[in-house]
Design a protein around this nucleic acid. Structure first.
Length: 724
RNA sequence: GCUGCUGUAGCUCAGUGGUAGAGCGCCUCCUUGGUAAGGAGGAGGUCAUGGGUUCAAGCCCCAUCAGCAGCUCCA
């Protein structure tokens, strides 16, 4: 006999080999009907799975359980695959898993699928669902299965099978085996019947590499989703609409916050006045906070000599994602080429290409000829000589990071341990040549301004400095009300060679970060292999008001650049010591941060951040003069104010101000002019009634300085009355 | 970078080989009004760019540039 333990603790007895479905039927016919899969001892399997052993734990999964939904999504992918194969018989299926929020199926198909095809695909899927066909699993010994797959000739499925574990391979038939119904190599599990795949929708189609490998052929990835019922599908679609409605590219265009001109360049943001003011306010807030924490503000240029980045390691390590260097001369260009060749060689023997280039240069330049290029010299020596020649003429790089410049500021003075920590902050513009497919809007750009800072401190000061950075990050997140955030600790992958510096330094840095984060009480996760090439880091990940996560600031510990640049300070023992650096940004980049804020607030910025805080709307020509006076006084009180003295009617003016998401609309007519008041309406449509102008100015000033803690509505006022 | 889709007025978008369109915005005039659209008129376009096919191209083909989605990458 088999003992089956159910989730409520009940234990039922059945014959060994009974199917999970039969057990469920004995418990509840309704539950058995609703089950899309079962969980047997923590493993999700088909409801037809036969149970063996002295005792098993069994739980039915319905489509409302997250794991059941995942099974339904996987099954729905099969239904979609069948639909595709029916509509386009030449379709070759590759891989179709469930994913967050849905599923996809990668297919090879000479017809390019477009959204116009979706309705047909969905109609065919609906047909398959209506047929209420069973998902039937059968298994074949590996050799036999491989023979069958080779006979069918789908290279993707053969590949999948070769990657699968186990002595047998499983197939799922949608319908009866042996009939012409759809069949697919698949690990499962699946729902019992095609009618149980939920409320589905084909969402989009895009290219995807086989195995995510750019060298592999590009397939068509058809995305779909399915939910337990129509209502939750609609809710999901509404959420997507909401995200689209908040898209910062759309809102940025509508509200005139920023623009991108192809003539200036892809990924290069032009901040229009209304976007720039938001950034300006954020920068001011942070600068004040930084100074209070002992930071010193610096400015550095947008470019630096290549040799600076050779020392830092940024060049040519990230050459692929940098704008090409600006060479001072052809000589510099060629010497840099030689340097790159020698660097790539990393050998005691110069390559033939290297020697050819050297000889060519030696013929033209005396110092190069005199310097010579011993072909059996170690690469280090060859590199050193080339850098000597490059001292005359070199190239410049648009700076990809601010740290080398800040290091040069640190280096320009001798430092005692009494001076440390030195904390240099800059809103520093950097440039990275991101792949064209990665660029878009403000959040993914090629030129951006980091709210960057570098802390130079003693090893003993490190934990305290990390903690301060973490506190500043909290300040920034809470400043704009992103109160739901977590921390990601990014560590080195010990098996990778992309990192510079000694394992000992890495251990020190990783320990310092981990213990600080642990001690801070923040929620955090550790991720191996996500560190920067010079050190481990912690990233702040915030959740916006519709639940999306965004990576913002980062704090990175660095023992390596101080070594590369031979940074020192004099200790209490009068000996030279090496400082530790902390790189940190809080907003991340101003572009990205403001982009995220646009989406978070859906363009309706709180009063203290709103590009336009107030719009004065005159009722008629008779009140134009008074409106102008109100506008002037608002401006004089430093409110960001607009005046609508057009010939439109008040309804149209209110509508336009509302669409422009101006927080306060001041309606002024003859009555207000007579009483020296303004009639206040919000962009949400609330009418706050009449305020004297000084009352309104004082209340809005309080709202601004308190950043919304003291909102205007709290002030005493008369309720809205209709007049006419 | 790769694959696909898209590119028409300042913005959003119609326009399936035969005279370049709408709404919003803008300008002018009329209207003088009370909290989400008053009325009329007008200006504004080498249909992204460059080639090609055709008697004829916004439309078909090729290339380039740009945008979008996904993949890949990301100090």
């Amino acid at each position: 006999m088999l003992k089956v333990r159910l989730p409520d603790g009940q234990v039922v007895e059945h014959a060994d080999g009974v199917s999970a479905l039969e057990v469920l039927r004995a418990v509840s016919a309704a539950l058995a009907r609703r089950a899309v899969a079962v969980k047997v001892n923590d493993r999700v399997v088909d409801v037809h799975t036969r149970l063996t052993g002295p005792q098993v734990e069994l739980r039915a999964l319905t489509i409302n359980d997250p794991e059941g939904l995942e099974v339904a999504r996987h099954s729905c992918a099969h239904v979609m695959a069948e639909a595709l194969c029916t509509l386009w018989p030449q379709t070759k299926l590759a891989y179709g898993p469930p994913v967050d929020n849905g599923f996809y199926y990668d297919v090879e198909l000479d017809h390019n699928l477009t959204p116009e095809d979706f309705a047909r695909i969905e109609a065919k899927m609906a047909e398959i669902v209506r047929e209420d066909r069973p998902f039937r699993r059968y298994e074949l010994p590996r050799a036999e299965a491989m023979k069958k797959l080779h006979a069918e000739g789908n290279p993707f499925k053969i590949d999948n099978a070769e990657r699968a574990d186990g002595d047998t391979l499983s197939f799922y038939v949608t319908g009866e085996p042996g009939t012409s119904h759809f069949e697919d190599l698949c690990r499962g599990p699946h729902v019992p019947s095609t009618k149980q795949v939920g409320a589905f929708k084909v969402m989009q189609v895009a290219g995807a590499y086989w195995h995510g490998d750019a060298a592999q052929p590009m397939l068509q990835r058809v995305y779909g989703t399915t939910f337990p019922d129509k209502k939750s599908l609609d809710a999901y679609l509404a959420q997507l609409e909401e995200a689209k409605r908040r898209d910062h590219r759309r809102i940025g265009q509508e509200l005139g916050l920023f623009t991108i001109s192809p003539l200036v360049g892809t990924g290069l943001v032009l901040w229009k006045p209304k976007g720039a003011i938001i950034r300006h306010i954020l920068e001011e807030q942070l600068r004040t906070e930084l100074v209070a924490h002992g930071y010193q503000v610096v400015y550095t240029p947008h470019i630096g000599r290549l040799d600076l980045y050779r020392t830092s390691g940024h060049f040519p390590y990230y050459k692929e994602s940098q704008y090409p260097p600006l060479y001072e001369s052809d000589r510099a260009r060629e010497l840099n080429r030689l340097w790159e060749l020698a660097r790539a060689a990393r050998d005691d023997q110069a390559t033939a290409e290297e020697l050819d280039l050297f000889n060519s240069l030696a013929q033209r330049y005396d110092d190069v000829r005199r310097g010579g290029y011993p072909q059996d010299a170690p690469a280090e020596e060859r590199l050193r000589r080339i850098r000597t020649w490059l001292e005359q003429e070199d190239g410049y790089l648009l700076k990809p990071m601010n740290c080398p410049h800040h290091i040069q500021i640190f280096c320009s003075d001798a430092h005692s341990y009494r001076d440390l920590p030195v904390k240099l902050a800059e809103f520093g513009q950097v440039y990275r040549y991101e792949q064209s497919g990665e660029v878009g809007g403000m959040t993914r750009v090629r030129g951006f301004c980091q709210d960057d800072a570098h802390v130079f401190c003693t090893p003993e000061q490190l934990p305290g400095e990390i903690l301060e950075c973490v506190d500043l990050s909290k300040f920034v997140l809470e400043l704009i009300g992103l109160n739901d955030y977590r921390v990601r600790v990014a560590l080195r992958d010990p098996d990778s060679d992309k990192y510079i510096g000694s394992p000992e330094n890495w251990r020190l840095a990783e320990d310092a970060l981990r213990s600080t984060v642990h001690g801070s009480g923040l929620k955090y996760t550790e991720e191996v292999g996500e560190a920067a090439f010079y050190g481990p880091k912690i990233d702040f990940v915030a959740r916006d008001c519709i639940g999306r996560e965004w990576q913002l600031g980062t704090v990175q510990v660095d023992y390596n650049l101080p070594e590369r640049f031979a940074l020192t300070y004099v200790g209490a023992d009068n000996a030279e010591h090496r400082p530790v650096m902390v790189h940190r940004t809080l907003f991340g980049s101003m572009e990205r941060f403001v982009g995220i804020l646009i989406e978070h607030f859906a363009g309706a910025f709180p009063l203290w951040l709103a590009p336009v805080q107030v719009r004065v709307c005159s009722i008629s020509e008779k009140s134009k003069t008074y409106a102008q006076r109100v506008y002037d006084l608002c401006r004089a009180a430093t409110l960001r104010c607009e005046l609508d003295n057009s010939d439109e009617r008040i309804g149209a003016k209110v509508r336009l101000a509302t669409l422009a998401k101006v927080p306060y609309i001041l309606v002024v007519g003859e009555m207000e002019a007579a009483n020296n008041t303004v009639n206040v309406r919000t962009r949400e449509g609330k009418q706050y009634g009449d305020f004297t102008l000084p009352e309104f100015l004082a209340a809005s000033a309080r709202e601004i300085t308190s950043r919304g803690q003291e909102a205007l509505a709290g002030a005493g006022q008369t309720p809205a009355v209709s007049r006419g």
